[in-house]
């Protein structure tokens, strides 16, 4: 029983990690006021590119980094369209998703069925190994730990540094920020590209750690889940960590319960998505919009018109 719980903790973190990575990037992007609906496509691209690059270079780490860069490059398009050309962010993000998924199938189809060069190394935290449930936190791959640390660092940057202050201010009222002498364009541009890189990282985690290997549709809507996670976490990196792991666990629930459900197990596939809707509805009833709420200028191009 305890082992089951430990296993559950561990897989929740593992499956939550790509969600978290994508969500962290999107938190920064949305905090600066830009909505990026292209996460699903960026993750898909990262996933396929990671396998391809890891095989080509012989190193999964190189694969991961290159996948990251490629996704950032694609996100650059969204940045140009939304920030510089001030086009419609929603449709641009959708276009990005479509392009990303298309690109991923072009890149990945040559590698279907191959295991690629997965990340197999693992870090043991001996101190935790003896504690019953918490030992699930030990023995994860390095990227998972990296993600945890990153979440904390990103939280600190967002709320305790002047860089984070600029980002948050831009998301609330870009005209004020501009009047204070900062460049809204630069800030938004950078956060969007950063978000793209994180999404690429998230995708590469799926194919290099979780799966490993690529097949069409491997991302399976996790990019969209990440968007929901950003909202539940009310745009805070630390809360995103908790929510992402929660969702990771939810996704695993299906496999836990599957043997008891037979065909009905397919229905559980939709569970995370139903949950997103339910929580969105609940959150709106309790709108504490003043402190916790979407950045005011989210989705609105600046300067307007």
């Amino acid at each position: 029983m305890i082992e089951g719980v430990e296993w559950f903790v561990r897989t929740s973190i593992e499956y939550g990690t790509p969600l978290l990575l994508a969500a962290l990037g999107e938190v920064y992007s949305e905090r600066s006021g830009v909505l990026n609906l292209g996460l699903e496509g960026l993750m898909a691209l990262g996933a396929a590119a990671a396998v391809a690059f890891s095989i080509a270079t012989g190193s999964p780490w190189c694969g991961m980094v290159l996948a990251c860069l490629l996704a950032a490059l694609l996100a650059l398009v969204h940045a140009i369209v939304s920030v510089i050309l001030r086009g419609n962010q929603i449709v641009s993000g959708l276009a990005l998703t479509i392009i990303g998924i298309g690109l991923s199938s072009i890149v990945g189809s040559n590698y279907v069925g191959l295991r690629g060069n997965p990340i197999t190394s693992v870090i043991e935290i001996h101190a935790l190994n003896r504690i019953p449930v918490l030992s699930g936190l030990s023995g994860l791959d390095p990227v998972a730990y990296f993600t945890m640390v990153t979440a904390i660092v990103l939280w600190l940057v967002l709320f305790k540094t002047s860089v984070g202050l600029k980002i948050r201010a831009t998301g609330e009222d870009p005209s004020v920020v501009e009047a204070m002498g900062h460049s809204v364009r630069t800030i938004r541009f950078l956060t969007v590209v950063f978000g793209g890189a994180m999404a690429g990282l998230a995708g590469s985690y799926i194919t290099l750690v979780l799966s490993p290997g690529w097949y069409e549709g491997i991302v399976a809507g996790r990019g969209w889940l990440a968007l929901g996670i950003v909202i539940f976490a009310s745009w805070s990196p630390l809360r995103a960590l908790l929510v992402a792991y929660l969702f990771g666990g939810l996704m695993q629930l299906r496999f836990v319960l599957a043997p008891y459900l037979g065909v009905g197990g397919v229905l559980l596939k939709g569970l995370p998505y139903v949950l997103v809707i339910v929580i969105l509805a609940l959150l709106s009833v309790e709108s504490m919009r003043k402190k916790i709420g979407a950045p005011e200028s989210l989705g609105k191009p600046y300067p307007p018109g």
Binding site: L165, R168, A169, V176, V177, A179, M180, H182, E296
Partner: peptide, 21 residues
């Protein structure tokens, strides 16, 4: 007002200060 309601007074002042380099 060139102020951001969701931020504190301190943060708003800080925003201007760092803007001037």
């Amino acid at each position: 007002f060139r102020l951001i309601p969701r931020l504190t007074v301190l943060e708003n002042i800080m925003l201007g200060v760092i803007g001037s380099g």
